[in-house]
Nucleic acid binder design. Structure first.
Lengths: 154, 154
DNA sequence: CTATTTAGTTAAGAGCACGTAACTATATCA
DNA sequence: TGATATAGTTACGTGCTCTTAACTAAATAG
């Protein structure tokens, strides 16, 4: 069966299992490292984007500018984030991860996704080549969907 | 390339993209529905498990019994969770989702994972059959890893 | 140059989630 | 039967995160 809907369903089923599995690990990891989910989301966003302004942090999370500024400030005090002036507009700050921040995000992935290795090993050997290629392709496609130039929301 | 490590890396890459993408949607969705991440994690856990005791809620999240009880109480007041006595031990409560609770969890998935359909559609047609099978297999394997009956590790 | 807008910070206060501690009720052990 | 352990609830205090409002600094319009 390879109808579009069948694929939708299977992908969703897989993601549900995955998200359910990693949710608890994430919550516990963040508690250990004294991070809120919002803070972690911010770090992860900047990890993938490279840099980001304070306002964008707020709008990403649906909180006010002020709240975002306070949150960012704590991350800076924790040595996870750096603030620098944007070149073309000195009102803005460019937020970027420190080395410590990058390490934290990467270790969070380790902590949450270590079980993926068990899963990969549980896959029958003859499936692995196809799985490897498919995963790479999906990641690639998803990244391109992730950055639509100008998609207005309604 | 189909070495185990290659597969580990590709899976991780894919998951990172996926989690990064769905994190923001999740945070915004929960804000709209006045749920904390911990509450949502609890609902999702019960959604998959079927039922659960109050203590387990606490230990899942790394919080005390008291905090778990308070959290559960709010979910009950919101009509998302039901408490009933466990049959064999009347000290325990069996927590289960109400119809409203099940609907909420399912709609949260819709809200977070709607973009998956775009992704599935972006996959070249000749890949879809293989992708469908692989997703189903991974979900199946992951579920079994998720519930090891009595398999001592070490 | 002056007025307005935009990005960000700071202060004060409200609400929520959590922990500790005290309590009730059931189960279990002697 | 009485002592102890377990599951859950309730009361109260603390700390964190958010909001509103007032503020500074830089860009931009007139």
């Amino acid at each position: 069966m390879s109808t579009p809907n069948e694929l939708h369903d299977r992908m969703r089923e897989w993601i549900e299992v995955l998200v359910g599995r990693s949710m608890r690990d994430l919550i516990l990891y963040l508690k250990q490292h004294d991070l809120s989910m919002a803070q972690y989301g911010t770090l992860m966003r900047i990890f993938h984007q490279g840099s980001c302004a304070v306002m964008q942090v707020g709008s990403h999370l649906g909180i006010t500018n002020a709240a975002a500024s306070q949150m960012v400030d704590k991350l800076v005090q924790q040595g996870l984030l750096e603030r620098s002036e944007a070149e073309h507009d000195r009102r803005m700050k460019q937020l970027s991860l420190t080395e410590k921040g990058r390490e934290l995000v990467q270790r969070a992935y380790e902590a949450r996704l270590g079980w993926l290795e068990q899963l990969a090993d549980a896959l029958p050997p003859e499936r692995r080549a196809a799985a490897t290629e498919l995963m790479a392709e999906l990641a690639h496609l998803a990244q391109r969907l992730d950055q639509p130039p100008a998609a207005p929301e309604g």
